[in-house]
Design a binder for these strands. Structure first.
Lengths: 138, 138
DNA sequence: ATTTCAATGCAACAATGTTGCAAAATTTAT
DNA sequence: ATAAATTTTGCAACATTGTTGCATTGAAAT
């Protein structure tokens, strides 16, 4: 587990620091997506708020995590699949937000169907946000 | 134009006030979606910030406008189609965000294809967020 | 081990959103 | 049309969220 984290950081030419290792492990531990506040609570007073912001920013830039569009417009992050972190070619994501418990799931196996766009519009990324009840709440 | 606004407010049992009329007209004037900040700028110092927040909240509750999930997690609002404002049965939306100019378009005529969900998951709403270049920026 | 460079913590700030309450405006009833 | 009842607004104060500059600390390279 710890090796995987260190590898991920090395591969992206990032210094291996406590905060980065801890924050990455939070993502690996949780099956869902995390908001900044979640990480702040999980970490207690271990790290400065600013450090968490900057770490998340760095991870997004490196393609380790990605932001998720949500219906309640709260900022959430989730681990990228390998293909995503490799380059900066964005790919499509399907996410499920539970209206009851608020958990956000990444449905990686579901493919986003391509949609027809009006003339002159070109798409580089498709995000499908499905909301409803998850398997635990229904 | 003004009649349509008054009708819309009356239909939803809302008092007809300057701020509501003005904010609604901003939505009718713009083809895209608006953020709170957009409305604040368009309105100048005419209304208090709090009034704008509360007006938008009210409109969302009444189903006059809806929030849009965005990739940059900024809160945006757009007018609902009639079917949407009628009841509170959410329906599916397709939105397009231009990476260049940031304009958000509601693509009402595009239908969201249903996706297969894992067992135990039930969907009540599907939002598809497509990003790329709009017809003006490509 | 020492230098070099990157990352952190702190403080201060900016933006965004919320709440309570009195004043003003709108609607309803007389 | 006027007065009472209700809703909406503006103000103030506050809470949350996110950003920036800079000195200090820690990691990496020589």
């Amino acid at each position: 587990m710890n090796e995987r984290i260190v590898d991920l950081l090395k591969k992206n030419h990032l210094s291996i620091t406590d905060s980065r290792k801890k924050i990455l492990s939070h993502f690996l531990d949780s099956n869902g997506a995390l908001a900044h506040a979640d990480i702040e609570h999980k970490s207690g007073t271990e790290f400065d708020r600013v450090t968490i912001y900057r770490t998340l920013q760095t991870f997004v830039e490196k393609g380790i995590i990605h932001t998720i569009p949500t219906t309640d417009n709260s900022v959430r992050y989730a681990l990228c699949k390998d293909e995503c972190s490799a380059g900066h070619h964005h790919d499509d994501h399907v996410h499920f937000m539970c209206d009851e418990c608020g958990t956000t799931y990444c449905l990686d196996h579901v493919t986003v169907p391509k949609v027809e766009l009006p003339a002159g519009f070109t798409a580089t990324q498709n995000d499908l946000v499905v909301s409803g009840l998850c398997n635990k709440c229904s």
